[in-house]
Computed example of a mutant assay.
Amino acid sequence: MTNKQILLIYDKECPACHFYCQIVRIRQSVGELVLIDAREHPEVLQEITAEGLDIDQGMVLKMDGQLYYGADAIHLLALLSGRSGVFNRLNYWLFSSKKVAGILYPILRSCRNLLLKILGKTKINNLKQEDNDRF
């Protein structure tokens, strides 16, 4: 067993992202998956943005100091996941192929962006821009 923490940074206000992050599981032997809402942790968001990554366009997985973004993050999660439960087996089946993850992730991201628009949710980077505009 290991105490290694693997961070999954995502937008908790997106129902689809939140559902995925709540249900995905990784094998205990890999480490502990820690969910981080990018809206509530500006220091983590700043680190991601400094690396040129846009949290509104993809979730981020941080493991061993390395950042994995978007399709790479979901692909790695699939490889790290346990195979117990229907969701985790489906997740592995869909995203264990880097090529398939690269094809499906942009489609899922577009659906996410549409869902946020329908729900009237502000994108995270828009919030950051609004804060900067006030000063």
Score class of each variant (00 low, 15 high):
Asn3Val: 08
Asn3Asp: 12
Asn3Met: 09
Lys4Arg: 08
Asp11Cys: 08
Cys14Ala: 04
Pro15Trp: 09
Pro15Phe: 05
Ala16Cys: 08
Cys17Ser: 09
His18Trp: 14
Phe19Leu: 13
Phe19Tyr: 15
Tyr20Glu: 14
Tyr20His: 15
Cys21Val: 14
Ile23Asp: 13
Arg25Lys: 12
Arg25Ile: 03
Arg27Asn: 05
Gln28Ile: 04
Gln28Pro: 14
Gln28Ala: 05
Ser29Val: 12
Val30Glu: 15
Val30Arg: 14
Glu32Tyr: 10
Val34Asp: 06
Ile36Val: 13
Ala38Thr: 01
Arg39Asp: 04
Arg39Thr: 06
Pro42Tyr: 05
Val44Ala: 13
Gln46Ile: 02
Gln46Gly: 11
Glu47Tyr: 07
Thr49Glu: 08
Thr49Val: 12
Thr49Gln: 14
Asp54Gln: 04
Ile55Gly: 07
Asp56Tyr: 01
Asp56Cys: 10
Gln57Gly: 02
Met59Asn: 10
Val60Arg: 14
Val60Pro: 06
Val60His: 15
Leu61Lys: 14
Leu61Pro: 11
Leu61Trp: 15
Lys62Ala: 11
Met63His: 11
Asp64Pro: 10
Gln66Thr: 09
Leu67Gln: 11
Tyr69Pro: 14
Ala71Arg: 00
Ala73His: 11
His75Met: 01
Leu76Ser: 06
Leu77Met: 13
Leu77Pro: 06
Ala78Gln: 01
Leu79Cys: 12
Ser81Arg: 03
Gly82Glu: 04
Ser84Arg: 14
Ser84Asn: 12
Val86Tyr: 10
Phe87Asp: 02
Asn88Asp: 08
Asn88Phe: 03
Arg89Val: 02
Arg89Thr: 03
Leu90Gly: 06
Asn91Gln: 13
Asn91Gly: 03
Asn91Asp: 12
Trp93Asn: 12
Leu94Cys: 07
Ser96Gly: 06
Ser96Lys: 05
Ser96Gln: 13
Ser97His: 05
Val100Arg: 06
Val100Ser: 08
Gly102Arg: 03
Ile103Gln: 09
Tyr105Ser: 00
Pro106Lys: 05
Ile107Arg: 01
Leu108Thr: 06
Arg109Ser: 11
Cys111Ser: 13
Arg112Ile: 02
Arg112Cys: 01
Leu114Glu: 08
Leu114Val: 00
Leu114Ser: 04
Leu115Met: 10
Leu115Gly: 10
Leu116Met: 14
Leu116Pro: 03
Lys117Cys: 01
Lys117Ile: 00
Ile118Asp: 08
Leu119His: 02
Leu119Ile: 12
Gly120Thr: 06
Gly120Phe: 00
Gly120Trp: 11
Thr122Ala: 10
Lys123Cys: 07
Ile124Ala: 03
Ile124Tyr: 05
Ile124Trp: 06
Leu127Met: 14
Leu127Cys: 05
Lys128Pro: 05
Lys128Met: 08
Gln129His: 10
Glu130Gly: 08
Glu130Val: 00
Glu130Ala: 07
Asp131Gln: 13
Asp131Phe: 09
Asn132Asp: 07
Asp133Ala: 15
Phe135Trp: 04
